[in-house]
């Protein structure tokens, strides 16, 4: 183990709104550089919560535990700092940002990422004349990565995720990952919502991004993705704990048998099945719109 690895020790996490209701009840996990780890687990087991906690979502509180990465106490850093250090989360449900174009979003994100943990205050990524990536280089980079992901260039002028189909949103997440070149990437159900061809394109894109300097945590429900992106280790998350870890064949076994036998081995039958209704993420729950139709 090196101090460059992502090391999660006995992590307990609860929603900020319900701080006494722990979702993660002690996670231990280490992801080294160049390694791919897969996390599988029933709906509502805490996979997204783990991803959010690692990225620093304000709707969750860390009850106890530690996360170390690149020599930093990760949990002490704000989300933007974690991102500038090279952490990346591909969202299960990416958010729409009305009025913000994909191009200016990507440009700011690239500039932020390149400016590192403590950005130079003289660099204003929103201003073409105050530092930041030159326009020509930016266009070239985005075009190259769009080709890799077989994306239509017209999305660059659209507003971020606004009116995007489910699959288009997932692809935009991958485009962001491609241009930001993270050192630790967490992919939360990036395969859900992709059609068969898109899954292959995205998976091949991710494969092309893999490098000895980047650790990857792939959250998925389907072994299919793991046919493309070969994990070094597969973990099963249930009821807030990692209940089993193994090689690639663990995913095959789950595909065959479902979760019941593994949960039984972990002595957990009764506790799971508290399904989260699809789409009921804290993000969507927080949307303030009140709609009345007559």
């Amino acid at each position: 183990m090196s101090d460059q690895d992502l090391i999660i020790r006995d992590l307990h996490v609860a929603p900020a709104a319900k701080p006494d209701h722990e979702i993660l009840k002690g996670i231990d996990l280490a992801v080294g550089r160049g390694e791919v780890h897969a996390i599988m687990g029933p709906n509502g087991s805490g996979k997204t919560t783990l991803a959010y906690a690692l990225m620093g979502h304000p709707a969750y509180v860390i009850k106890s535990g530690k996360v170390l990465w690149k020599g930093h106490d990760l949990l002490k850093l704000s989300a933007d700092k974690r991102a500038r250090l090279g952490m990346f989360l591909a969202f299960q449900y990416p958010m729409a940002i009305p009025g913000l174009s994909v191009a200016s979003f990507l440009r700011s994100a690239i500039n932020a990422r390149r400016s590192g943990l403590n950005p130079d205050p003289a660099v204003d990524p929103t201003d073409a004349f105050k530092g930041g990536i030159p326009m020509g280089e930016f266009r070239k980079l985005v075009r190259e990565k769009m080709t890799l992901l077989k994306m239509d260039e017209s999305i660059a002028s659209r507003y971020v995720n606004e009116g995007f189909s489910g699959g288009e949103k997932k692809r935009l997440e991958m485009l962001q990952m491609a241009v930001l070149e993270p050192e630790m990437a967490i992919l939360d159900e990036t395969d859900s919502g992709l059609d068969i061809d898109a899954l292959r394109i995205v998976a091949e894109g991710v494969n092309a991004m893999l490098n000895p300097n980047m650790g990857v945590l792939v959250i998925t429900h389907y072994q299919r993705l793991l046919n493309y992106i070969t994990p070094d280790t597969v973990h099963v998350l249930a009821a807030g704990r990692i209940v089993a870890s193994g090689g690639k064949d663990l995913a095959l076994r789950l595909e065959d048998e479902g979760y019941a036998p593994i949960l039984a081995e972990a002595g957990l039958e009764g506790e799971v099945g508290d399904e989260a209704p699809d789409g009921a993420t804290p993000n969507e729950a927080a949307a303030p719109a009140m709609e009345a139709a007559h």
Partner: peptide, 22 residues
């Protein structure tokens, strides 16, 4: 919306820039 802010911050945008964009 806090989750919109988080989305932008998770891409490295500092909180003030994220607010401005939103």
């Amino acid at each position: 919306d806090e989750s919109l802010l988080f989305y932008l911050e998770s891409r490295g945008l500092d909180p003030d820039e994220a607010r401005k964009f939103i």
